[in-house]
């Protein structure tokens, strides 16, 4: 479902003397449907960078990133938009929403974009929020005022409200208590069982053990020349 080959990336910082910083070289991996791959490596080794390149908000210098039949490294913006709409889901560590929009609508949003009727989208969003133990009295409020753990769960709900065939998870269990961590882990297991290809970053070792079929150490993709 996701196949990366020969992928490299560098940053050029024009406002700091045009410094060129190579951050990735010859990255390669592949994930099959129903499989969960964990990215490991020390902080700063490029786990999030790799994930953002798959999502398409970081540009690749060379190589290919096949998600289904779309090469994110070369696709036009509108192809990536279409890919994100129906195929590729992403649970990032940050919740970015239009202020003052109710939580239930924030979660229903990906479904509405897919053309699901409003009532059905809200119902599915509500069911997921309930499962994730977000108190019903908060659903009509904007998540911008929520606690870190609540925002995290709203983000997870957005990522699981549609059965994306491919999922990127950036520390989905960070800042969650034991009960909610268990809910999220079972959601991820459910996604695997229905055949989603998942790439995740889990600092939570027990979660990694339980979910990941394989691990890839991104340190192996770090260019040697980097000082």
């Amino acid at each position: 479902m996701i196949t990366i080959s020969n992928l490299s990336k560098s940053f050029t910082l024009h406002n700091q003397g045009a410094a060129v910083i190579p951050v990735m070289e010859n990255a390669a991996l592949s994930v099959a449907p129903g499989e969960c791959l964990g990215l490991v490596g020390a902080s700063g080794s490029g786990k999030s960078t790799l994930m953002r390149m798959i999502w398409g908000n970081y540009l690749a210098a060379s190589g290919s990133i096949m998600v289904g039949d779309v090469d994110v490294a070369k696709a036009a913006p509108r192809e990536i938009i279409a890919l994100r709409r129906g195929t590729l889901g992403y649970v990032s560590q940050f919740l970015r929403v239009v202020p003052r929009v109710p939580t239930v609508d924030v979660v229903a949003d990906p479904l509405l974009t897919l053309g699901v009727p409003v009532e059905e989208a809200r119902a599915r969003a509500s069911a997921l929020l309930a499962k994730l133990n977000i108190p019903e009295r908060l659903w009509a409020l904007s998540p911008t005022t929520f606690s870190g753990g609540e925002q995290q769960r709203v983000n997870i709900a957005r990522g699981f409200v549609h059965p994306y065939p491919a999922l990127l998870l950036d520390e989905p269990t960070a800042s969650l208590d034991a009960v909610n961590r268990e809910v999220v882990l079972s959601l991820i297991e459910g996604a695997k069982a229905r055949g989603a290809a998942i790439i995740g970053i889990f600092h939570d070792e027990a979660a990694r053990e339980r979910l990941c079929d394989r691990l890839v150490d991104v340190t192996g993709f770090t260019p040697r020349v980097a000082a």
Binding site: G56, N57, Y58, L59, P77
Partner: peptide, 18 residues
């Protein structure tokens, strides 16, 4: 020019970075 979050998160041109 490009995908909005790409241009904002990984700007390539000197002026966009600024």
């Amino acid at each position: 020019q490009g995908l909005t979050d790409q241009v904002l998160d990984d700007p390539q041109h000197e002026y966009t970075q600024l």
